[in-house]
Amino acid sequence: MSFPPDQIAELQALVPGVMACREGVVSYFLLPGLQLPAGCTPSKVDALLCPTPRDGYESRLFFSQLVTSTSARNWHVTNTRIVDRQWCAFSWKTNKTGLRLAQMVVEHLCAIK
């Protein structure tokens, strides 16, 4: 699946090193050194955005390690392998379709602010 260049540019403004990748027919965006909201430990992690529906979620944001935050989240995925890396994820539904790529990332990050 391809995404509009303006959405990718907006994502790059958020995470300068963003890279598109693919596993099978699913597109992902690798977000290296994604800065997390204040109060999170660590403050930066690599993340992987799955912008299409997966596992019953409209989109998913995977993290390279567990993150502690002021808002406790249900980290129900702790060791899944995607594009040759291990990822963690907390359960979070954005409950809205049609979000732009950057909006998806922000919507997930706001869950741990």
Partner: peptide
């Protein structure tokens, strides 16, 4: 960036 604050666990 704006977002609709519609997410939920």
């Amino acid at each position: 960036v704006s977002h609709p604050r519609c997410g939920a666990s």
